[in-house]
Structure formats: C-alpha cells, structure tokens
C-alpha cells in the first residue's frame, strides 16, 4: 500500500533521475566535442551516425567514446561503493579511497604487472579482463586487513577510518618499492594509472568493467532495505530480525567488488565515493532505494565532468582525472569534517 508521502517521493525520484540523465546527455556531447581536436556538436551527432569524416570517426570512436563511457561506469561504481561503505560503517567519512581499499587494489594490479610481465602481454585484451580480478583480490585482502586491524570488541567507525589511513600509507609504500623495480616505461604507465587515468583507454576496458557494474548495481539496489535497517544502529537492526554481521559482510563484499573493479579500470580516484552519497542524501533523504540510483548518476556525471576538465584545463597537457576529483571534493570533505562531532 502506498501512502501519499511515498508517492510524492517516487515522483521526486523520477524527476531527479530524468534531470540527471538529461544533464549527463548534455555533458556527454560537450565532452565528446571538446579536446585537443575540436569537433562541433553538429559534427559529433553526424559522426555518431557514421556520417562524419574518417578522422572525426577515429577521434570519437577510438578515443573519446570509450573514455567517456568508462568515466560514467567508474563514477557510478565508486559512488555506490561509497554509499554502501558509509551505510554499513554508519560513518559519513567512509570512502574506498580513504579506507585504503583503492590502494590495495592498485597494489594488486602493480604486483600482477610486475610478476606476469614476462609471461603475457600486459596490453592484451586477456590481461585487461584479468586485471579487474587481480584488483578485486587486492581490494578484498585490503578490506580484510583493515577490518581485522580495526576489530577490538567490535568495529568502531572512527577506528576504522584511522586504521584505513594507516593501511593506505603502508600499501602506498609497497607500491613505491615495487614500481621502482619495474622498467622505466612500465613505471611511468603505473604512476599515471595510479593517480587515476582514464584517457588512454580502449573499448576492452569498457567491456571489462561493464559486466561488474551491470551485475553489482542491481544487487546493491536489492540490498537497499538492509542498508536502511543497518542505518538504525546494530541494536535496532537485530531487534528487527536482521542478522547484522552477515548482512554487513555481504554488503561489504559488494562495495569492495565495485571499488576493486573501478580501480582496475580507472586507477585510484579518491573522495568521489565520499562526496557523492552526501549530495544524494541531501536531495533524496535517508532511504537507500532512492540514494543508490541517484548516487550512481551523480557519480557518473561528476567523473565525466572532471575528466573533461582534466583534458581541457591545461590542454594539451592532460591532467589525470583523479587529481581533478580530489581538488573538487577535498574542500567538501573538510566541510564535513568541521561539521561532524
């Protein structure tokens, strides 16, 4: 039975989603037409329907389109990962980047490149599909380490964040050591990739990430109710008949998988998963069935816009998108920090 408030909420959700999709479409065309080689919006549409010049087709289909689609997927993935992490830790400062999950995934990928460099071609499509798996392993191991180290008769949210910062620094140190053992070209590639790089991308990255996102977002939506219940606090949640620890572990796995797959495709992009859920909550209120879809869209939009800014701000120098995201979101993080008790 739907009451009036719920109907109103649903209407608002539809309105917000339509608005966000329209904005994403608009920015999508802006993003496609800007860059070192400018293509007029009319030409973009023509080219998309295979009416453009060969050069325009090359730029659009081989370079810009996969990059933009990847940005959209990664943005959505990291944002939902952030929503879940904040929900299960009841901590509004949680983020896969700050907790060290991204760095763990990054370390796994660098180790993978380092140890299998001789055996297989790193740029081959096979290893592009294996990389998310390696990143996922790294992300899971990182999450386990952080969880275990933060455990002291239960997991206190603040201790979790502090431990995350420490583990993050440790992974970063190992990363530096292993990166330096690589030959210079791999080193440069790894460095750029780790700061969050989605411009040197190809369709294989898009196809490698797509199944993860398509699979995990519906599961996350399905779990929205558990997140709502967990948000009421552990005592209330178990009183309502929820198996708190089991639900929390399943949700953590989803969040970690989303972060791991996104990192494998796009490198370490911090703060996105932190800020987006806050914006979504501001618009939609506390219920996760509304927050999750709105966060996915806002995350996608934010990352695409950041990517476009990164490409054009100092053109022809391209700035890794992770840097732009940090620059845009860190002030908001500071604001949250001042506000929280």
């Amino acid at each position: 039975m739907m009451n009036a408030v719920e109907v109103k909420k649903k209407k608002k959700l539809v309105g917000v989603i339509v608005l966000l999709i329209l904005t994403i479409l608009l920015m999508f065309f802006v993003s496609l037409s800007t860059g070192v080689i400018q293509i007029a919006p009319a030409d973009v549409i023509k080219t998309l329907f295979h009416q453009g010049t060969a050069r325009q087709e090359l730029v659009l289909f081989d370079f810009r389109l996969p990059g933009i689609l990847l940005a959209l997927l990664i943005g959505a993935g990291l944002a939902i990962s952030g929503v879940i992490l904040q929900g299960i830790t009841q901590n509004e400062l949680a983020d896969p980047g700050i907790l060290g999950i991204n760095t763990g995934a990054g370390l796994a990928v660098v180790l993978f490149i380092y140890f299998f460099k001789g055996q297989l071609d790193v740029t081959s499509s096979f290893s592009i599909f294996i990389m998310p798996v390696a990143a996922l392993m790294g992300a899971i191991v990182a999450a386990l380490i952080i969880y275990a180290l933060a455990w002291k008769r239960g997991v206190n949210p603040i201790r979790l964040v502090l431990v995350g910062i420490g583990v993050n620094a440790g992974f970063a140190a190992f990363l530096t050591i292993f990166q330096l053992k690589m030959d210079p070209q791999d080193f440069r590639q790894a460095t750029v990739w780790l700061t969050g790089d989605i411009w040197n991308t190809s369709w294989s990255f898009v196809f490698a990430l797509l199944p993860w996102i398509l699979l995990l977002i519906p599961i996350a939506l399905h779990k929205a109710h558990s997140l709502n219940v967990l948000n009421l606090g552990d005592d209330v949640a178990s009183g309502l008949g929820t198996n708190v620890e089991s639900e929390r572990r399943q949700l953590l796995l989803i969040a970690v998988a989303l972060a791991g797959a996104s990192v494998a495709a796009g490198g370490g992009i911090a703060f996105l998963g932190l800020v987006v859920p806050h914006i979504a909550r501001k618009i939609m209120g506390p219920l996760h069935q509304y927050i999750i879809p709105v966060s996915a869209l806002i995350g996608a939009l934010l990352l695409m816009v950041s990517d476009t800014i990164g490409k054009n701000l100092l053109a022809p120098t391209e700035i890794p998108v992770g840097i732009i995201v940090s620059l845009l979101s860190a002030p908001y993080f500071v604001y949250l920090l001042i506000r929280t008790k």
Binding site: L93, I98, L162, F271, I324, S326, L327, P331, V334, L337
Partner: peptide
C-alpha cells in the same frame, strides 16, 4: 589526521 589527509591531498593535487 583526517584534516591532514584532506589538506595534504588538496595541496598535492594542485
């Protein structure tokens, strides 16, 4: 610690 991380990240980004 968190403020240090945020300010540090911001300055490092620039």
């Amino acid at each position: 610690a968190l403020a240090g991380v945020a300010i540090g990240t911001m300055l490092r980004s620039i």
